[in-house]
Design a protein around this nucleic acid. Structure first.
Lengths: 243, 243
DNA sequence: CCAAAAGTGTTTCCTTTACACCCATGC
DNA sequence: GCATGGGTGTAAAGGAAACACTTTTGG
C-alpha cells in the first residue's frame, strides 16, 4: 500500500528509484505488423535496438510521460489513437546502472497509405515483428520481454475489442480491416465470413454510403466505413489455431 | 526506454520516486466475493480503509515485494496460489506527501470451509465487494480505483482462464466451482449446463474417482475433482448479461 | 472476354440455452 | 414417502466454417 502503515521502513534512507516509461508503437506496413525501435546512442547497450521511452518527470502522470516521450523520440508527427498501459517491469538487475522501474505502454499508429521514405530513419525504424520473433534481433535491457508481452496483448485485444480499427485510416474498407487482423495474427481469414461477422456486430462499423474506391488492377469497388462507438466485441472474433 | 538516450534529464537532480505495491486479496465467504482491507493507523487517511501493501525494497523484485507485504500485513498464514500484476498507478497527486508510483497485484486465497472467527481482525477485514460497489465504503488514496480495476480483471479472467479453481480448496465439487462463478459474477448459472461445460473442456478438471461428500441436509453426493493442467479456457465460459 | 476483388447464399456442424427428467442421499 | 442437491437427456436456436456463387470493376 502507500506509506504510513510500515513506519519501520524509510524510503528516503535508500537510493531512490527511477521510474521510466517504455512505449511499444505498432503499425502495419506492407501487410506486416511492425514495432518502432531506436538504436541506442550511448552505453549501456550502445548500438543495440531498444524501445523508445524515458524518465517520468516529477509532476507528470505516467500516461503523460508516455505521450511526451513518444513525441520526443519519434519522428512521427501524429498522436496515437490508442495508448494503453500493459505491464510494469522492475527487476532489480534490469538496468545495470541503477534501480529502474519501467511502465510499459503500447500504442497504435494507423497505417499510412504512403509509408514515409527513410529520411533520417537511422535512429528510429519500424521493424517487422517476425524479425523479433524469429530471434534475429535482440533488444537492450529486458525489452525483448516487454515487446513480447505487448504483442501478445495486442493479438488478444483484436479478439475482444474493436481496436483493430485504430490500425486503419479514418475511412476504410472491410478488406482493409481484415488485412489488419491477418497481419497481426499472421494468418489468413475467409473474406466472406469476415465480412458478415463484422457487419452483424452492432456498433462496430458505421457505413459511409460511399461505395467509393476503384481498384488499381481490377475488382469490385468496396464500401467505405468508419469506426463505430463500440469498444468491446461480444461475441469475440476468434483467432484460428489459438485452441 | 531506459536512461541513456535522453541525456538532457538527470533523474538524480529531482526528488526521488517511491515505489510501492498494493495488493488486492480476494476470497469467497458465504458465497460472497470479498477483498482484504486494513484500517490505516497513521495519517493521511487515518482510520480509513485501505489496501495492504508497502514499499518495494532496493534489491527486491516487484512480485517479491508483493508476497512479502502480503505476509507482513496479513494474519493469513497461507501463500496465495495466484498473484498477478494488473496495473500501475502513478498520478502525481495520488499521495499527498510524496511522489509514489504503486504497482497493483491481485491475489486469491482459497475459501476455507471454516472462515476464521475474527480474533484481532480489527486491523484486517474481508469486506464484501458489494459494500464497495454500493459506494458504502470509500478507500484511502486512489484505492477505490485500484480495487475496481482488480475486480473487473478478476471477473473477466473467470471467462477466459481456469483461475476460478484457485478460489476452491484442492479437492472440490463442480457445484463448489459453480458457486465461485456465481459469487464473482453476482449472477446465477444453470447447474446442469455448467456441469457439462466444465467437464467437456479438456484439462480443466481432473476426476478423483472419489464420489465422496455427503450432504448436510440431503442431496446426492457429488464427485470430487482437482484442478487440471489447463490455464486458458477456449472457448471461454461466457458470462450472462455481459453483452 | 478474363482476372481480380467485393459481397451474398447456403449447407453443415458445433455450441449454447432452456428445461425436463433421473439419481442418490438425509430426514 | 418427501425434500434437496447432483447429474444427464434432449430439442430448439444461434453462431461459426467451408465454399459456391454473384457483382462490379480494370484490362
Amino acid at each position: 500500500m502507500d506509506p504510513g502503515t510500515t513506519p519501520d521502513y524509510d524510503p528516503q534512507a535508500f537510493p531512490p528509484f527511477a521510474v521510466t516509461v517504455d512505449i511499444v508503437v505498432m503499425t502495419i506496413i506492407e501487410d506486416e505488423l511492425r514495432v518502432l525501435l531506436i538504436r541506442r546512442a550511448v552505453p549501456p547497450f550502445r548500438d543495440s535496438w531498444a524501445l523508445p521511452g524515458g524518465f517520468v518527470r516529477p509532476d507528470e502522470d505516467l500516461s503523460t510521460a508516455a505521450v511526451r516521450e513518444l513525441a520526443e523520440e519519434t519522428s512521427i508527427n501524429q498522436e496515437p489513437d490508442h495508448l494503453e498501459q500493459f505491464g510494469t517491469y522492475g527487476h532489480p538487475d534490469r538496468d545495470p546502472r541503477m534501480r529502474v522501474v519501467s511502465v510499459g505502454y503500447w500504442a497504435i499508429i494507423p497505417d499510412l497509405p504512403t509509408p514515409k521514405g527513410g529520411s533520417d530513419a537511422a535512429y528510429a525504424e519500424l521493424v517487422p515483428v517476425a524479425e523479433l520473433e524469429g530471434g534475429r534481433i535482440r533488444l537492450a535491457f529486458d525489452h525483448d520481454r516487454i515487446v513480447t508481452d505487448a504483442i501478445a496483448l495486442a493479438r488478444s485485444s483484436l479478439e475482444n475489442t474493436t481496436i483493430a480499427t485504430r490500425f486503419c485510416p479514418p475511412e476504410f474498407t472491410i478488406s482493409d480491416l481484415r488485412r489488419v487482423y491477418e497481419a497481426v495474427w499472421d494468418s489468413k481469414l475467409d473474406p466472406g465470413n469476415f465480412q458478415r461477422k463484422v457487419k452483424q456486430t452492432s456498433e462496430f462499423l458505421q457505413p459511409l454510403n460511399q461505395t467509393t474506391r476503384s481498384g488499381d488492377k481490377g475488382g469490385r469497388p468496396a464500401a467505405l466505413w468508419v469506426k463505430g462507438p463500440a469498444e468491446k466485441l461480444s461475441p469475440p472474433l476468434s483467432r484460428p489455431d489459438s485452441n
